[in-house]
């Protein structure tokens, strides 16, 4: 492993992604990617008594699913990196409390999934680990309750607002000599261009995505054409358009092979999700369900995955703070 350029780590042992799993909720079941997920749950409570318990169940069941698919016992997992949006990462903590796997709880807002993959692949690259598990979850109802309004409140969502994805995605990293491999990681810097509208996360996070994107290209010497697909976390429709615009200004034309998980997961017109999906589970489920399958089928051979997060909470928002963004990138190749 060596550091190249300003921020990028090049991994020599190239951990491979052994398997993935994604479980989603009812709204995602109606979306265009429904057939790619391992399981779609019809009831957003999933038989539990609260949204928070349901979210913990999502992450727990997703981890069980990925371990089952990879045929690995939980005792063979060295470490797990997990996170979510709820205060003190309680969904991950409660979802994993019975797992008996050494646990790192992460918070990077909606960028947590790739943050986990970055750290997990460094652990793998050290040569000391055999299996690393990375997982994140989010739940529309628990997120609304914590960050916005009660579900029954008769308010209108603004056109730039995004819909938190209900679900969980999990990835297991191993030493196999089968792709896809994680080859480079580019952890991002916190970027804040002063957006204060909590209903416009896409605009708040796009500059962070731009910073990480440009740094990744500069550090690796690659161009957008090198990748079959560049996929961002959850910028949504508006954030996607903004990123294409501002990347062009910096001399990178990404319009051809670029898309966003928040755009992919919902049908904007049919499902009335305004600017698209968001949440820790957005990129986690789209990658684990959809993109990973495209990679194993060789439809995507080189993928740049950039997860974006809005580093805010309801207290700072009420205190009039702006919303800093962050973005982490990993390069995954067959």
């Amino acid at each position: 492993m060596k550091k190249i350029g300003k921020q990028t780590l090049q991994l020599d042992n190239k951990p491979s992604i052994l398997n993935t799993a994604a479980i989603v909720g009812p709204k995602e079941l109606d979306g265009p990617l429904a057939k790619y997920f391992d399981k779609c749950v019809e009831d957003e409570f999933w038989g539990e008594s609260s949204w928070e318990k349901a979210e913990s169940k999502f992450i727990k069941e997703t981890i069980n699913t990925v371990l089952g698919k990879a045929n690995i016992s939980s005792t063979d997992v060295d470490y797990v990196f997990a996170g979510d949006l709820l205060n003190q990462c309680i969904s991950s903590c409660f979802g994993l409390r019975d797992s008996n796997i050494p646990f790192f709880g992460l918070f990077g807002a909606c960028s947590t999934f790739v943050e986990g993959l970055c750290l997990g692949s460094v652990f793998m690259d050290s040569g000391a680990c055999n299996h690393i598990l990375c997982a994140t979850s989010s739940h529309f109802c628990s997120a609304e309750k914590q960050f916005r309004f009660p579900l029954e409140l008769g308010n209108q969502r603004t056109p730039t607002s995004q819909w938190t994805v209900t679900g969980s995605g999990a990835v297991i990293l191993g030493k196999n000599n089968v792709g896809p491999y994680i080859t480079h990681i580019t952890p991002g810097k916190i970027v804040d261009l002063g957006i204060k509208d909590a209903n416009n996360m896409g605009a708040a996070m796009a500059p962070a995505a731009l910073s990480t994107l440009c740094t990744h290209f500069e550090d690796t010497g690659r161009t957008p054409d090198y990748y079959d697909a560049i996929i961002t976390g959850d910028l949504g429709h508006l954030g996607k358009d903004i990123l294409i615009d501002i990347a062009k200004n910096k001399g990178y034309d990404i319009a051809k092979n670029y898309n966003d998980c928040g755009v992919l997961i919902f049908d904007k017109k049919k499902q009335d999700t305004h600017s698209g999906g968001s949440g820790c589970a957005c990129i986690a489920t789209v990658f684990s369900g959809y993109l990973y399958k495209l990679m194993t089928e060789n439809k995507i051979k080189k993928l740049l995955l950039i997860a974006t997060g809005a580093l805010t909470n309801s207290t700072t928002a009420q205190q009039g703070e702006s919303i800093p963004g962050i973005a982490h990138a990993i390069s995954i190749e067959m």
Partner: peptide
């Protein structure tokens, strides 16, 4: 009496 429920739209 009531139970919270997701907005379908």
């Amino acid at each position: 009496i009531a139970k919270p429920k997701i907005k379908k739209q």
